[in-house]
Structures are given as structure tokens and as C-alpha cells.
């Protein structure tokens, strides 16, 4: 299992108000699996993704990523884990506006300490892989939504992570570029990456081998 959750609870505190985003989730995701996570808005999908991606720690319960329990890790150990094991793709693309496509893709490799020449070379290869070999020096604002998301996917691949986490990657895209993004992600899964996709789109969701349905911070159903 590349990801294992045991009785995971996540509570957000806003002053005196407590929001229970996840209330006791147990889940196992095998290496190389293709998982979709569906559920109504507010059901805890993004919270779950953040935990799987070592971006946050659970309030209680355990989250194992590649055998390591993240609940006991400090900030820098979490950062290291994200850097090596996880590639995020967000609905909002979250590219850095003042950097070119090439520089955005090279960013995670900078944090990993890869020399400039090597990371620029790999960033270029990755952009070619996602079909943006002609857009290397464009800033995000000069790219279409579909192109931006493909830059984000290339960035997610930068440090060759085990796991790709995509939280509503097609949410801001039209149908055809959304489809292209999903196909690109599936291609990565075929190449061996564990792929977890949050989606509202039933058609996209159905394509996954393993389908997790959430409601009110709990797993309602797992289909295989």
C-alpha cells in the first residue's frame, strides 16, 4: 500500500467553532492504483487530499505515505516527503505568475537541490511530454486554461513522485481540454504513478479503477 489511512479525523478550529471535516476515515490505496474521489461539496474531499499529500496532519488517526506515518513528522520532514513522493495538481492551477512555464516546472527541483542546468533540461523534457514544447518561455497569463493545467501536471512530475494528487483538475476547464487533462493523467497512471483524482464529473469519476464516495467526512462507498 502506498497510502493507508486509519481512523483519520480532521477537525478545523475557527475560533470557538469546530468544523469536523473528516470523521473517521480508513482507506488503503495500492501502489499504481487509479482512484477517483467523489462527493458533494464540503464532504471533505480536499481535506483528504491534503492529508494524503502530507500538506497537513490529522487531528487523530494515522496517515501512512509509503510506510511513513505523517502525524509524527515536523514541518521540514513533511516538506521533504511532499518534495519526493507527491505531485499536486490543483483546480486553480496555482502556477506562479511571474515565472515562465519552464521555471514553474523547475521549481520543485530547485527545492530538491538539483543544479540549474539539469533542472532546466528536465523541465523542458516534461513540458515536451505534456505537449507544451512550444510554450517553454510563456508566462501562465499567456497560456490557455488547458495549457496551464498541463504545465501544472509537468510541475507535479518534476521530482518523479510516486503519487499524483489532482483536486478537481478539470473544474476550471471546458469539456474538451478537461478531457485532454484527464487523458494525460491517465497516461501517467499507465506509466506507473499512483493517481488520485477528485472530481465532480461522474463520467470522469467512473473511469477510475477504484472509486471512493465521501459524504459528511466519511467514506460512504468504495467501488472497485
Amino acid at each position: 500500500m502506498v497510502i493507508r489511512l486509519e481512523e483519520v479525523v480532521k477537525v478545523y478550529r475557527l475560533g470557538r467553532v469546530e468544523v469536523r471535516a473528516l470523521s473517521g476515515i480508513s482507506l488503503e490505496i495500492p501502489r499504481g492504483e487509479y482512484v477517483s474521489i467523489m462527493g458533494p461539496s464540503g464532504s471533505g474531499k480536499s481535506t483528504l487530499m491534503n492529508l494524503i499529500g502530507a500538506l497537513d496532519r490529522p487531528t487523530s488517526g494515522r496517515v501512512y505515505i509509503d510506510g511513513v506515518d505523517i502525524s509524527g513528522l515536523n514541518d521540514d520532514q513533511l516538506a521533504l516527503l511532499r518534495r519526493k513522493k507527491v505531485g499536486f495538481v490543483f483546480q486553480q492551477f496555482n502556477l506562479i505568475g511571474k515565472l515562465t512555464a519552464l521555471e514553474n516546472v523547475a521549481l520543485p527541483m530547485w527545492f530538491a537541490g538539483i543544479p540549474r542546468a539539469a533542472r532546466m533540461r528536465r523541465a523542458k523534457e516534461l513540458l515536451e511530454l505534456v505537449g507544451l514544447g512550444e510554450r517553454l518561455h510563456h508566462k501562465p497569463a499567456e497560456l490557455s486554461g488547458g495549457e496551464r493545467q498541463r504545465v501544472a501536471i509537468a510541475r507535479a512530475l518534476a521530482n518523479d513522485p510516486e503519487i499524483i494528487l489532482a483536486d478537481e483538475p478539470t473544474g476550471n476547464l471546458d469539456t474538451s481540454s478537461g478531457m485532454a487533462v484527464i487523458e494525460l493523467l491517465e497516461e501517467l497512471n499507465r506509466l506507473g504513478k499512483t493517481l488520485v483524482v477528485v472530481t465532480h464529473d461522474l463520467d470522469f469519476g467512473r473511469r477510475a479503477r477504484m472509486r471512493v464516495k465521501l459524504r459528511d467526512g466519511m467514506v460512504r462507498e468504495v467501488e472497485r
Binding site: D75, L107, F111
Partner: peptide, 16 residues
């Protein structure tokens, strides 16, 4: 703020 989130999500350590 958002950019800082991105930096951290893509693996930047606190020192970085």
C-alpha cells in the same frame, strides 16, 4: 500567501 502555499506544496522547506 497563495504563492507561499504553492512553494510549500511543491516541497519548499521552512529554511528555503
Amino acid at each position: 500567501t497563495r504563492e507561499i502555499g504553492v512553494l510549500k506544496a511543491t516541497g519548499a522547506s521552512n529554511a528555503q
